[in-house]
Structure formats: structure tokens, C-alpha cells
Computed example of a mutant assay.
Amino acid sequence: MKSILNQIQTTVAVAAVASMATLANISSADAATYRIDWTGNQGYSAQGYFGYDNAFQGSIVTRDQLNRFGISFFDPAGSLLQSFRYNFPTSSSNFNFNFDTVSETVLQSDSFDTANGFDVGADFNTSLTDLLFYTYRNPDQGLPIAAIFLKDDLSPEVCDTFPNCRLDNGGQLTATLVPEPGIIFGLLVVGSLGRVLKKKPASA
């Protein structure tokens, strides 16, 4: 039984190290990578990542400066709904994303088509087959402060049948810097292999 357990531990450790090695190949020392997270008022959520060259540090990074971006959406039970991965520099013309590298903040204080908002997912207001994820502000419609919306239809942001007119809204899209691959890789090797290569107890 111990032999089987050790084999499983070794397999897991090798697979984990291989995965991190892949991440190390994707990222480089002159690039910044961030994880993004969002949870709406009804429990829907999003997780993803984006990256840009460190040459843009100290400025507002827009879609034109990104070199990678991906995001996945989940229902309140944690089941995957849909994922989007954008190709650069030929991303969708409707894709809009703005990040303040100084405050490490995703700009989300205005509508989807402005420099202070974002539009991620399906093309806004054109598709009924994919998820829509965007910011929207319109004082004339009762939205003086921008809110984030996750929708799977073209219903209005302000409606009398909430939540049936959309999946979720509210919350904040946050960004967290991912440590350099070398640091992650080193910690993984020490932690994983340290458990696998434990000294066996002396035989009786």
C-alpha cells in the first residue's frame, strides 16, 4: 500500500512540476502576469488572467498593450459556463480592457465602450449565443454609478424582473500579481518533492 501511495505522490509531483515548467515557458522575466477575479451579487463568478510587457509599467495598459488574456465564468455552484481566450494582437474589435499598473486596478467606473470601463466576452449587444460581461453606467436609466453585468441575453440593464433579466451584476473585478515563474517553480519543487522523498521508517 505504501508503495502505491508513493507512486501516486510521485506522479502528482511530477505532473505539478511539469505544469509549472509550462507556465515558466509562457511567462518571461520582462512580462507581468495578473490573475483576475469577480463575484456578483447572485454568486456567479469569473476567474482569469492577463499579461503585458513590463515596458508599459507606470501607465494605463489597454487592449493594445496586452499580450495575453483569458477568462472563465462559473455559476453559483461552481460549474463552468463558458471560457474566452483572446488572441493578440488580433483580438475582437469589441474587446475593451484597461488596467492602471500603478494602483493595480482594473478600470471599471464607466461604461463598456470607454477608457474607464471594460467589455469582455461576446461582442456587446450583438450576440445571443455567448456570455456578455461588461460595465455599464447610464444616469438616464437609473444607473448613475457604473455596475458590472454578466448576461446571456440582450435584456435591459434596468428591469422589473431581476434577476430573470440577467444572470448577475455588481461586485468588483480585481487583479492580483502572479509571482515570477521561477519563485513558484522553486516553492513547488521544495514542497512537492519534500513530501515524496520522505525518509522511510526503519524496518522492524
Results as ranks from 00 to 15, higher is better:
M1S: 08
Q7A: 09
F95P: 01
N138I: 13
G121N: 14
L150S: 02
L5N: 07
G142N: 01
P201M: 13
L131H: 00
V12Q: 03
I145M: 10
I145K: 13
K198D: 04
V102L: 07
P163M: 07
L81P: 05
F88E: 02
D110E: 10
T101C: 02
Q9D: 05
G48V: 09
N125G: 04
D64F: 11
G117R: 14
D152E: 14
T11C: 04
L197S: 09
S59G: 01
V196S: 08
L167N: 02
K199T: 14
N25A: 09
T161H: 08
G117W: 13
M20G: 00
T39Y: 00
G43M: 00
N41S: 08
N87A: 12
S93C: 05
S28R: 09
R85S: 15
G171A: 14
G78D: 11
T10Y: 15
G78W: 15
C165M: 08
P139K: 15
Q172M: 13
Q47G: 06
T174A: 00
K151W: 07
T22A: 12
P76R: 14
K2A: 08
R35D: 03
L197Y: 10
V106W: 00
D123T: 04
D130G: 11
D75Y: 14
Y86W: 08
A13G: 06
Q82E: 09
K2S: 05
S109Y: 02
F84Q: 02
S192F: 04
S91E: 14
N98V: 00
F69T: 02
Y52Q: 08
A31P: 00
N94T: 06
D30G: 08
G182C: 02
D30V: 06
F149M: 09
L188R: 12
S203D: 15
Q7Y: 04
R137C: 05
G51Y: 04
A15D: 06
S111L: 05
Y136I: 11
T11W: 10
G182S: 09
A31M: 04
N25F: 09
P201A: 06
T22F: 08
D37L: 03
R68K: 06
Q57H: 11
A18M: 12
V189G: 02
Q42Y: 04
P76A: 02
L177C: 07
L66V: 04
N125A: 11
T101H: 03
I145W: 08
L173C: 12
N116E: 09
G194P: 14
A122H: 03
A29K: 11
A204Y: 09
D130I: 01
T126S: 04
V61N: 06
Q141E: 14
F97Q: 01
K151V: 08
S103M: 02
P181M: 02
V189D: 00
V120G: 01
V12N: 00
E104H: 05
G78H: 15
L188M: 15
N169S: 14
A55S: 12
A146L: 10
V12Y: 13
S103W: 04
Y49L: 09
R166Y: 15
G58W: 10
Q172E: 14
S111H: 07
A13F: 02
K151R: 15
F185D: 10
L143R: 13
G70D: 05
I184H: 07
V106R: 03
S93R: 03
G170K: 07
N138L: 06
N169I: 13
G48D: 03
